[in-house]
Design a protein around this nucleic acid. Sequence first.
DNA 1: TTTACTGTTCACCA
DNA 2: GTGGTGAACAGTAA
Length: 273
Amino acid sequence: MPELPEVENIRRVIEPRLLGRKIIRAKLLRPDIIAYPSLEEFQDAVIGFRIKEVCRRGKYLVLMAEDGARLDLHLRMTGQLLAVPADFPEEKHTHLVFYLDDGRELRFADTRRFGRFWFLKPGEEDQVTGIESLGPEPLERDFSAKYLEEQLNRKKRPVKQALLAQGIVAGIGNIYSDEILFAAGVAPLRRCDTLMDAEWGKVAAAARDVIRKAIEDNRMTEEEYLDGKGKRYKNYEFFVYGRAGQPCKRCGTELKQVMIGGRSSVYCPKCQG
DNA sequence: TTTACTGTTCACCA
DNA sequence: GTGGTGAACAGTAA
């Protein structure tokens, strides 16, 4: 479900509710969402976890504890994370509840159960979450046209697939990769090794612009977030995603859809050369 | 009833 | 080793 902009907004909404709070109890209803360490270790370890910071890396959320421990999670397709009062109605498919020391609860619900949690002890090297192999964030300085060109100029894969590769750039998924390529004027099927330097420039700039705008447009208050139960967060206007067969908002040409690496991709045959 | 789906990993094959 | 495809995870909604 959520890509970088949505995860960032979830982070912004829940962080104020979690800072300084301590987990006093955990209720785990679906053990399969715990990826690491073992169930017993996880349940023991999170008790007493006092939240010092809520961070995001790519599509991951990372809760940092005062003692240096880490509680990481990935929402995958349908995960919802809610920090709510105890009397807030419980979502269907709630799999994990952390009870906080102020009476509120941090709840994880996930219809498709693809989401995962990891707990890392203070100082423990992260060899399990996948965060270590992420590429740069699109909004950080080390993400640039030069970086993309160096990483990809000999790759034969379609540029769409390169944008989806978390090891190349972190946080972009199927929605925003389509939006970025439209903004850059580059067709999703273009092989990386055929892109000119100027085109890498457009892709890098479009990635920054689209992601930045999506974060801003998806921005919401806690109330709006809770009204949407943590799963409605789209105010960003799509130019191509989900619009196959409809006219391009820029030139009116009918938008086309293709399958690339098992994912659908929508683009404008005229605007994206 | 069938199909597609905002994520990621892994098995398999050329 | 490389690259591409499809399945798997599980549930919902069109």
